[in-house]
Amino acid sequence: MTTNLVEINNLTFNREERCIYNNISLSIPKGKVTAIMGPSGIGKTTLLRLMGGQLKPSKGEILFAGHDIPKLSRTALYEIRKRMSMLFQSGALFTDMSVYENVAFPIREHSKLPESIIEKMVMMKLEVVGLRGAMHLKPSELSGGMARRAALARAIALDPELIMYDEPFAGQDPISMGVIVRLIRDLNDALGLTSVVVSHDVPEVMSIADYIYIIADEKIIGQGTPEQIYAQESPLVQQFIKGEHDGPVAFHYPATDYKSELMGEGS
């Protein structure tokens, strides 16, 4: 059994009055790609934000390398965040800087390295994602897939231990999807990273994840390696991975009785 970089124990999280997570526990093993899947709108991104300390849970603990994230002081939290990194769905590149400046940004912020070394580091990161030729472009001149790769180069600029991907495959054409799938796997293995991928794209996740959690209805409804997930009998899991339109997760948003509302008899 490998050690776990992140452990989440008995986590409960409410947003205003709506319950997002009800007493869930999961662990992210070191050096592996762990995927968190589930239908849209169940707060997968929220889970990443909780792990990054941007949100505070109502109950439970989130351990990152032994530190309980919600209980850390502001300074300690900022210190811990230097060891993790997050790839946002939109890329979140700084629009007023070139690709090169974007990647150099975290290095400049957190180190006092001379410019010549920063330049070499940025070149290496850009080479990994294949954008060395695009380094003088502005984010507005990049395609969606390129922007995400540039953001990935920025995310790995400081060689973090943990990298969190928020919907890395959403809205990508098949080619850039393939590029990103390969990048996530290669970076994980080559740099010895620990990766967390939040996504609802079943085939891509199945192809790269070492371990998968499926979340729905405030709880974890299934977990295991891709093979174990395929073999699960839970109808909810089956509906999700096969993409059936109706099942335990209903097609209809909870509503009053259709007939009576149409006839104007509803309250």
Partner: peptide, 14 residues
């Protein structure tokens, strides 16, 4: 809106 503020936070930059 473009998550630049969030991403600064996650880069440990206030």
């Amino acid at each position: 809106a473009t998550e630049q503020l969030s991403s600064l936070e996650m880069m440990a930059v206030d």
